[in-house]
Amino acid sequence: MNLVLRIWRQASAEVEGRFEDYPVSGISTDYSFLEVLDRINEDLVSQNQEPVAYEMDCREGICGSCSLMINGTPHGPRPATTTCQLYMRHFHDGQTITVEPWLSRATPVIKDLVVDRSALDRIMQSAGYISVHTGEAPDANTIPVSKSRADKAFVAASCIGCGACIAACPNASAMLFVAAKVTHLSLLPQGEPERSHRVRAMVVAMDREGFGNCSNHYECAKACPKSIPVSLIARLNREFQHAGLLGHEYGGPIHHAAHEE
């Protein structure tokens, strides 16, 4: 198939970007979207031109590196699909495809299609973990977890942190990402001790990075390559309200009188 890719080119964060058209021919319908970009880059390199910068790593839909806005949709038109797992059979011959970076204030462009997603890392560093002593792995089933809880936690844990939710959101909100990360730990016994601290710290970190607010458009879940449901955002709201109103981090120490003669 023959295609035209209209790609956002921007040499660095300091200069203005613009769209440029790249015609490409002889594309197999079995090419992945990234392989088309590779073809364009091979041509550009052979002509001594600057190749298009884009991010990728595993190419099997699990690492969360690929991040392209394809025809206005993060990861392109297919549901539950990352860019690397999007195949050209879902496009038609002669089509012009617009490719943009995932822009928001909290994820600025570094170059061409590459944006700085370290804001997501900083949210994770704030509290997106459990504090345990490392050592040998415990025996299986020493900590009981119900099947339904494990399933729910797994749905949340399948978030690959790509940031498609932020790119899809009209407010560039990171609520779905934070909701997934908070939920998967708060549902499991290992995450319970730091539960209220975690949600508070991650929401504060999210606010600090300059992401927007959820205003219930639910574009995030439609764009999510792992189909994280928007009900997790409601759960994040509940976790946060619970931590804010009842969490033991606030309100000082418990009154506990010592023995006096």
Partner: peptide, 23 residues
């Protein structure tokens, strides 16, 4: 706060009426 978080208001393929709808 939301308009600050998303300064680039329109993506390619995002029509003005979608933009109005979201606001």
């Amino acid at each position: 706060e939301n308009s600050l978080a998303r300064p680039e208001s329109c993506h390619a393929g995002q029509s003005w009426y979608l933009h109005v709808y979201q606001r």
